[in-house]
Amino acid sequence: MDESPTPVSDLLLHPIRWRITQRLLGRELTTTELKRDLPDVPTTSLYRHVAVLIDAGFLSVVRERRVRGTIERTLTLDQSKGRIDEAEARAMTPEQHRQAFLLVLTRLAADFDRLVESGDLYPRMAQLGYSQLALYVDSEDLTTIRDGISALLEPHLQETPGKDRVVLSMIALPDV
């Protein structure tokens, strides 16, 4: 029997899986490091959600090593898979769109709070920015802009020694 893949929205609209993928954006972490970064998530739940994301092809195991009789896995996120394509977005309910958007906003707020509370805000001001612009575009213009931004960012999606990790979030909302 031919099974169709689980929609991205079904996988990522779960708060724990969302948080796991956000922690792995552009980096490799062990499951122990994930547990340290998500201390409120019970260990069994964390491992179960990691397994779901591996099975769906979102996470890859890049290394394994034996630690005190168990196998510790180092994971990475396939950033190309975490996007909801237009067909799937059209199939989502308004409530699913609200939930997805709220997850993004919640994560942004939590990341900002962590930066402010770390005491590392002012030394890293050159890496911080937030603003809004109004653009006047049609669908073709917006596609051209998105393609150009993707091409510009592509060389910077892999971890590189000596480079800091910066999470760039972009949101495009039609004005109604």
Rank of each mutant, 00 (worst) to 15 (best):
I84E: 02
A87V: 15
A87M: 13
A87L: 15
E88V: 02
A91Y: 04
M92T: 00
M92D: 00
T93W: 04
P94T: 06
P94E: 06
Q96H: 02
Q96L: 00
H97A: 03
R98Y: 00
Q99L: 13
Q99M: 08
A100L: 11
F101A: 13
L102M: 13
L102P: 01
L103W: 00
V104D: 05
V104N: 03
L105N: 09
T106R: 12
T106Q: 12
T106L: 06
R107S: 13
L108D: 13
L108T: 09
A110H: 08
A110I: 07
D111P: 03
F112K: 12
F112E: 13
D113E: 15
R114Y: 08
L115N: 03
V116S: 09
E117A: 15
S118M: 07
D120A: 12
L121P: 02
Y122H: 10
P123N: 02
P123C: 01
P123G: 05
P123T: 05
R124V: 04
R124H: 10
M125T: 08
M125N: 05
A126D: 11
A126F: 04
L128I: 15
G129H: 14
Y130P: 03
S131I: 08
L133P: 02
A134S: 13
L135T: 08
Y136P: 02
Y136A: 13
Y136Q: 14
D138Q: 07
S139P: 02
E140S: 11
D141M: 08
D141I: 04
T143K: 11
T143D: 09
T143H: 12
T144E: 13
T144H: 11
I145F: 14
R146E: 15
R146T: 14
R146H: 14
S150H: 12
L153N: 05
E154C: 04
P155E: 03
P155C: 05
P155T: 00
L157P: 01
L157A: 08
L157T: 07
Q158S: 10
E159D: 10
E159M: 06
T160L: 09
P161S: 04
G162T: 06
D164I: 07
D164C: 03
D164M: 08
R165Q: 07
V166F: 01
V166D: 03
L168P: 03
